[in-house]
Amino acid sequence: MFPSNFEYFAPTTLDEALGLLAEHGEEAKVLAGGQSLIPLMKLRFAAPAVVIDINRVAGLDHLEESKRGRGFLRIGALVRNATLERSDLLADRYPTMATAAPLISDPIVRNQGTLVGSLCHADPQGDFGSVMLALDGEVVVKSTAGERRIPIKRFLDGPFTSTIRPDELAVEARVPSPEGRFSGTYLKLERKVGDFATVGVAVFVSTERGKVTRAGIGLTGVGATNIKATEAEAALVGNRLTDATIDEASRLAAAAADPRTDVRGSADYKRDVVRVYVARGLQELSGARAA
């Protein structure tokens, strides 16, 4: 399959990339890992006149914690999923993201694919959207006009639609650093290795003296975008993780899901998987017996 023809630019600095976006924005596509864009171009679902390959832009491959303010994790636009999968920093401090990374596609695709590219692609079946929603992350975007920081809930706008403007480049994703005792995980039901989620669930809690101070629940594959189960989160805050609170939160999360029947399963089935997976995830976090 051959994509339609395009003009190709491979800038090496951020300024150069932003200049090209300012000039060509509307008719251009940014190429990061290419693992979503190139398949779309081959099918001619996308036929940009200009492709701006950011793979040679210096300074976009940082994966580090910043101590500014309350602290946050910075994931540069060129950090590959394979790097996230192997990161000790993620395994120690951002377990929700660390567990999701190896469940995305297969090792060869993960050598190329990026978290930031996945967010820009805004596939409702993308796993990192849910992780970012559970962790209350944001995306930093830049253009020649300046910088915007967009909370993930506003960034993901609809199926395959984000609120980034055509002249903007997403330079990094940010996630607030955890405080107190915390734990998190990602559960994914897939038909085979490398498949997109039938249902995915991201969970995160931090606790102080046994009580939940922050809760995050993100749902994959059960709506037009990744869904933040805000009512379920609110039901946990201020409470202990007990069978009763976990039960309540998982029912609220299932109610927040808006799945559709497709080859991967019926709407009712997927909604119930949300309930079971949220309960299972929270049980795991509470260290209690499995659901």
Binding site: A10, G34, Q35, P39, V51, N111, Q112, G194
Partner: peptide
Amino acid sequence: DTTSCGVCTVLVDGTPVKSCTMFGVQ
């Protein structure tokens, strides 16, 4: 030809890549 089977895999700077999902100019 849809990034799924991996038979097109080659090494680029030592790293496995699906060559049906990368442009030659890259």
